[in-house]
């Protein structure tokens, strides 16, 4: 996972901190922000391949963040983290261009697998369009 950069967006500080640490421990270049606005700012300045996005957040919620993110950076893949036991918000997220969804509390291995797949797809997309990274 050479260049893979992951951004985790979640308002729960403990969760955010721990998951970033665990990803980093698995040699993934991960960062974290605690709301949608900051996420949009940071993707403008830095390159990220995959964004793991919580749905329920105060202020700008996950779905809205997703819409704006996809508008500004169409190639970034997003994995929705849903607290809802329902597939509903996950499916809604996918409607707006999310790669997949995963239910909280998530299994790290499952998450890693999905991040991997998302990254693959991003690379394929970029190759198709003759782009490579930024």
């Amino acid at each position: 996972m050479e260049n893979l950069r992951v951004l985790v967006v979640d308002d729960e500080a403990d969760f955010l901190e721990t998951i970033v640490m665990r990803l980093q421990r698995r040699k993934i270049d991960a960062s974290g922000v605690d709301d949608g606005k900051k996420a949009l700012e940071i993707v403008e300045n830095e390159r990220f391949d995959v964004v793991v996005l919580d749905v329920l957040m105060p202020g700008m919620d996950g779905i809205e963040t997703l819409k704006l993110l996809k508008k500004r950076k169409p190639f970034i893949e997003v994995i929705i983290l849903t607290g809802h036991g329902s597939v509903e918000s996950g499916l809604q997220g996918m409607q707006f261009g999310a790669f997949d969804y995963i239910m909280k509390p998530a299994d790290l291995d499952e998450l890693l697998e999905k991040i991997q797949q998302a990254y693959e797809r991003k690379r394929i997309h970029e190759e198709k369009h003759g782009l490579s990274g930024e």
Binding site: D14, F15, T18, I19, R22, R25, G83, K104, L108
Partner: peptide, 20 residues
């Protein structure tokens, strides 16, 4: 469920971290 779910997610991550 929602209220319980978030702390549960944190606990799970923390346990994972300790295991790591």
């Amino acid at each position: 469920a929602h209220e319980v779910n978030n702390p549960l997610a944190v606990i799970k991550e923390k346990v994972g971290w300790v295991k790591d």
